[in-house]
Simulated assay, not measured.
Amino acid sequence: MDRRAVGTHKHKALCHVCQRQFAPSSLRPWISVRPGVLELIARAAPGWDEGKAICRKDLTKYRRLYVEQLLAQERGELGELDRQVIESLGSGQPISQPPEDMLEGKVTFGERMADRVAQFGGSWTFILAFTAVLIVWMTVNVVGILAKPFDPYPFILLNLALSSLAAIQAPVIMMSQRRQETKDRLRGENDYRVNLKAELEIRQLHEKIDHQLARQWDKLVELQQIQIELLEERDEEDK
C-alpha cells in the first residue's frame, strides 16, 4: 500500500504558484505561457523560470489579471461588459446570448399585446381591411342604402372613431418600439462582447505564436553555434 502511494506521488508534479501536487496533464509548462502572463507570475511567485509549471486554476487567475490590466491600459476604467468578457475568457463559456432569451420572463402581458397590435397595424392586412371598412361606411351613409343614415356626410362619427383609433394606436406602437429598442441595445451589447473577446483571443494567440517563434529561433541559433563549434574542432583535428 505504501509503495503504491509512493509511486502515485512520484507521478505527480508541483505547481510553482500554489505549491500543490498535480498530475502532469493538469499542469502547464513554463514555455507554453505567453510573455505577458509570465511577467505577472514571476512578480507574484519569485523563482518562476524555465522548467517550472503552473496549474490550470492559477494560470486562469493570472490570465484574467493580465487581460484586466491590458483593458485598463487601453480603455481606462473597466465597465460591466468588459468584466463579463474577462469572466468568459476565464471560464471558456460562450458569451453571446439571444436578446429573446435575456428578456424571457420579463415581458408583461401588455407588452406582448403591444407587439401584436403594432405588428398587425403595420401590415397590408390591416391597411386593406381598414380601407374596406371606410368604403363600406361611406357607401352605406351616402348612397342611401339605409332609410336613415346613422352617420351622414360629413361623417362626424367616422371622424371620431378614426381619432380615437389613432389616439390609442400611437402609444401602443410607441410601447412596441421601446421594446424593440431594448432588443437592439441587447444585440449591440452582445456584438460588443463578442468582438472584444475575439480581439483579446486573437491578440493572445499572436503573443503565443511570437513567443514560440522566438523560442524556436533561439534553439536554432544554439544548434547552429554547436554545429560551427563541431566543424571548427574537426578542422583542428584534420590539421
Rank of each mutant, 00 (worst) to 15 (best):
L59P: 01
G47A: 03
R63M: 13
A23C: 08
W48L: 09
I54L: 14
R28C: 05
P29W: 12
L14Q: 14
V17C: 02
C55M: 07
A42K: 06
T60S: 04
A44T: 01
Q19Y: 03
A23M: 06
L40E: 03
A23H: 13
R43A: 07
V33I: 15
R63E: 08
G51W: 10
A44F: 04
K12M: 15
K61E: 09
K52S: 13
R43C: 13
I31M: 09
G51L: 11
K12T: 12
W30P: 00
V33M: 13
P24L: 11
F22S: 04
H16F: 15
V33G: 15
V17R: 01
G36K: 04
K12G: 09
V33R: 13
C15G: 14
W30C: 03
D49I: 02
P35V: 06
R20Q: 14
R63L: 13
A44M: 00
I41L: 02
C15T: 07
W48K: 01
R28T: 11
V37C: 12
P46H: 02
K57P: 00
A23T: 06
P24H: 07
H11T: 13
R20L: 04
R34E: 09
G36E: 09
K52G: 02
R28F: 14
K10R: 15
S25A: 15
E39Q: 06
R63S: 12
L59Q: 00
P29G: 02
Q19N: 07
A42Q: 13
K52M: 09
G47D: 07
E39T: 08
P24R: 09
T60P: 02
R56D: 14
H16A: 14
K52R: 11
V17K: 04
F22P: 03
F22A: 05
L40M: 08
R64F: 01
D49S: 06
P29A: 09
Y62M: 03
L38P: 04
A53W: 11
K10G: 00
L59S: 02
A42I: 05
K10F: 06
D58N: 08
I41C: 04
C18E: 05
S25E: 14
L59I: 04
K57T: 11
C15F: 12
A53F: 12
L27K: 01
R28W: 06
E50D: 15
H16Q: 15
L40I: 11
P46C: 02
Q19K: 14
Y62C: 01
E39L: 07
R63F: 06
L59V: 01
P35L: 11
D58E: 05
P24Y: 07
V17A: 13
Y62D: 09
